[in-house]
């Protein structure tokens, strides 16, 4: 640990703790998850950087969305994201999360994940290699340092819009809005 690092620890221990203890929720959405096992096991050993998978959303603070998102998976993704404790960070993995990738015209995948939950950063490629995950993690560190990984704040602020988008694609959802906002007014505002 160099002196620079130490100064940061002293100045903002919480932020540093959030940086170096990224616990990723165990959620395999699409084909991209095939890159995760080598990342967390002996070949690349993500635990060196404090990145470990956890079993439930409650214990995690990093959500890695690996690959295409079908409508059915989207419901689970939203639920999982909402159950993660704040602060929480999301990373879209692979082109599919950015613009639909090779599934851009599929009838049951969504194209732009960012419309439904806030994304802090993307890893482009189809497939990105495990090294790309490490690059993403270091980028995420920089973002956290500069307070720019604020997806959860955006979600809270623009919840009405997110919820409206979610309901547009999923229809009626099984759980009530998690924040106190008037979804209906938001929809009328958007349309009006």
């Amino acid at each position: 640990m160099d002196r620079n690092q130490l100064m940061k620890w002293i100045k903002a221990p919480t932020k540093m703790a959030h940086k170096y203890s990224l616990n990723a929720v165990y959620f395999c959405t699409g084909c991209g998850v095939i890159e995760v096992p080598p990342t967390i096991t002996s070949r690349w050993d993500a635990e060196r950087f404090g990145v470990v998978p956890t079993a439930t959303a409650r214990q995690a603070n990093l959500f890695l969305i690996t690959g295409y998102v079908s409508v059915k998976t989207l419901r689970a993704i939203i639920r999982t994201y909402e159950q993660m404790p704040e602060p929480k960070y999301t990373v879209g993995f692979g082109s599919c999360t950015i613009n639909g990738g090779m599934y851009w015209d599929s009838y049951n995948t969504i194209n732009q994940l960012d419309k439904y939950i806030p994304i802090d950063g993307y890893i482009a490629g189809c497939m990105p290699r495990p090294e790309a995950i490490f690059v993403a993690v270091t980028h995420l560190w920089t973002l956290i340092d500069k307070d720019m990984a604020d997806g959860y704040k955006r979600y809270r602020k623009n919840y009405a819009a997110y919820r409206a988008n979610q309901e547009m694609i999923l229809g009626e959802m099984e759980w009530p809005p998690i924040f106190q906002t008037e979804v209906a007014t938001a929809i009328t505002e958007r349309e009006g």
């Binding site: 439930t56 689970a76 993704i77 639920r79 159950q83 959802m173 759980w175 998690i178």
Partner: peptide, 10 residues
């Protein structure tokens, strides 16, 4: 109790 971990489902 409705907001309990259910592997992404309600």
């Amino acid at each position: 109790q409705a907001d309990s971990y259910a592997a992404g489902a309600a």
